[in-house]
Nucleic acid binder design. Structure first.
Lengths: 158, 158
DNA sequence: CTGGATCCCCTTGGATACTG
DNA sequence: CAGTATCCAAGGGGATCCAG
């Protein structure tokens, strides 16, 4: 079905705890889609997934690769990812603690899907940039233009 | 290329302002992918896009449909979407102001891509839920188990 | 009706320090 | 090395009031 792959615009299939349409979006606790979206969209998750998709890495390795991340956020991100079954955490009981992180099949699967979105962005980033420039320009010059054109089409509606 | 559709795990193609790999992720201003991801991931954007994909709507209509949203956030979300060229805003110069919002082809295109991600989530939400349950259970009982198993494999690494 | 401006709370996320 | 706990700043986001 190319018209609508899923049930409702609210993006919560009735297979979940609460079948709903848009109104129920407010009860986001019940919405898996929202959860996943929030997860992959948060500041660092996507990057961690991308990194681990290439090879398994240790905590410090990830931290060094990402560099801008704080240990707090890396730990938190990894824990979230682990909890969702996207990342597997392996603790090696050695004297200097060693922990390896790797993508689970589920995580790899998600990454594949995300790639489509990333590809889209790369293909359309120029259009978006152009739109932003246009919007920005209109915001400066558009005020006077809108004012001038206003009276030409004013009609009553009440 | 089924191995890697895009240049780097940092998800910023060298077609952008700053060709980079992961290190440069910190300079997120240059990263279009990050921008789009943040946009579609914020609390309301996706819902607005989904709604507008069905038909164009007025401000109040959107507000009534979403219901949980504040006018502040709806206005802000729409402005962002408009700036990115994903939504088209049409002002009708009538006495009670009337503004219609509709998805641009670019916005519709993005929505199509997002659907793949949504579908993935719907297909795997049970796995994720199971993983969470397992993680949660392990978090409670796993403490003692990890402690017991620790001495069985302890080795020196220094 | 369509927003912009303001106030205020709460979460996200960075920096730092401490533990195992 | 691999985290956890605490403190703190910035921003997200709701409520309300006001303007066009």
């Amino acid at each position: 079905m190319e018209d609508g792959t899923f049930s409702s615009p609210g993006y919560c299939a009735d297979t979940g705890p609460g079948a709903f349409d848009v109104k129920n979006w407010d009860a986001r606790e019940d919405c898996e889609v929202r959860q996943i979206l929030d997860r992959i969209a948060d500041k660092w998750s996507l990057l961690v997934i991308a990194l681990l998709d290439e090879r398994s890495m240790r905590f410090t390795e990830l931290r060094r690769e990402i560099d801008g991340i704080s240990q707090r956020m890396l730990a938190r991100t990894l824990r979230h990812l682990e909890r969702d079954g996207l990342v597997k955490r392996t603790v090696h009981p050695v004297v200097p603690p060693r922990v390896d992180y790797e993508l689970t099949p589920l995580g790899a699967s998600l990454h594949s899907t995300i790639k489509a979105l990333v590809s889209w962005t790369e293909e359309h980033q120029s259009q978006i940039a152009a739109a932003r420039t246009a919007y920005d320009a209109a915001a400066s010059a558009g005020t006077a233009a809108a004012d001038a054109g206003a009276d030409s089409g004013s009609v009553r509606a009440g």
